[in-house]
């Protein structure tokens, strides 16, 4: 800018006697500053409404519906209190089995994620060069960026009879497992892996290198160090990750429909009852909620949540 140009001084608002300039909007700021309660209300109204009405409200509605019943002929929901739905899901073997199977699958998915996250986290945090680390970090979080349906569909293609997996295993004289529980576990583990890998990796980075040196110095071989130093120190990260992998696996039903074959999980049973018998679906829907609450309670008792 030419030195001769004289810029007019930009003044917004009116100068106050003490020489400070006030911009528009300062009036509101001053008002809020003087009234802490008003400030709090302004801050929290929207999120609280969202949480209260949409989130908890809908769960309460679900819970209430679980005590209603359906007209068997018209499939119309009748709002009359009954415990029948809960009795049914707790006593009919098919429901019991489905619930147990779903919990088992959720545990298997969690275990698979943890077993893969441990060496990967170790490599990324302690061995890899910064470039390799960045590439792997992108690789791990990649599943979060693609659409859910696309990912599940890609696994459906992978496990297809005569599909890529069969083709890969053919030279070894083996075939893929096809659609079913193993395929479902692998698919779910792929979907939720980032939620386990990220906390485990960042916890690994926080373990000072010299703890590994010290362990080795005191006579521990690599696996002993992993077992006695790394895993105990990573426990909070594993538990934090498992909360996601476990609860997300518990609630999923699309993956089961795509790659689960005949495998029924809580989600698929609820989905098939949503139109036929909403109160029963609602009652079954409380099962994963109760299980997750129980899981969170146990996690809390272990003290891991404090470090989240």
């Amino acid at each position: 800018m030419a030195a001769s140009t004289i810029e007019p001084e930009i003044v917004s608002g009116t100068p106050t006697p003490d020489g400070h300039h006030h911009r528009r909007g300062d009036g509101i700021s001053r008002l809020l500053h003087a009234r802490p309660k008003l400030r709090l209300t302004a801050l929290l109204t929207l999120p609280l409404a969202w949480l209260g009405v949409l989130y908890i409200g809908s769960l309460v509605l679900l819970f209430v519906t679980a005590f209603w019943t359906t007209d068997t002929f018209t499939s119309k929901v009748i709002p009359a209190f009954t415990l029948e739905n809960f009795v049914e899901i707790l006593t009919v073997p098919a429901y019991q089995l489905t619930a147990l199977r779903t919990i088992g699958i959720a545990f298997a998915v969690t275990a698979l994620c943890a077993v893969v996250a441990l060496p990967l986290g170790l490599y990324m945090a302690k061995v890899a060069s910064p470039t390799v680390r960045a590439v792997l970090a992108i690789g791990i979080t990649l599943p979060l960026w693609a659409g859910y349906l696309v990912k599940v569909f890609s696994w459906r293609i992978t496990f297809m009879n005569g599909g890529p997996l069969d083709w890969l295993l053919a030279p070894l004289g083996m075939t893929g497992p096809g659609y079913g529980t193993p395929a479902l576990i692998v698919t779910l583990a792929y979907l939720w892996f980032p939620y386990m890998a990220v906390p485990v990796y960042s916890a690994f980075r926080q373990i000072p290198d010299n703890l590994f040196d010290a362990s080795s110095d005191l006579g521990a071989k690599a696996w002993a160090t992993v077992r006695t130093v790394a895993i105990p120190l990573l426990k909070p990260a594993f538990i934090a990750g498992s909360i996601f992998t476990f609860s997300l696996s518990l609630g999923d039903y699309i993956a089961a429909q795509f790659v689960g074959g005949k495998t029924q999980v809580i989600g698929t049973v609820i989905a098939s009852n949503i139109n036929l018998n909403p109160p029963l679906a609602a009652a079954f829907g409380t099962v994963p909620i109760v299980v997750v609450v129980l899981y969170l309670f146990l996690a809390r008792k272990s003290g891991a949540l404090k470090q989240l």
């Binding site: 000072p208 010299n210 703890l211 010290a214 362990s215 110095d217 005191l218």
Partner: peptide, 10 residues
């Protein structure tokens, strides 16, 4: 055996 600068206690 080694005594580390920042002790490296587990």
């Amino acid at each position: 055996n080694t005594v580390f600068q920042d002790y490296a206690l587990f």
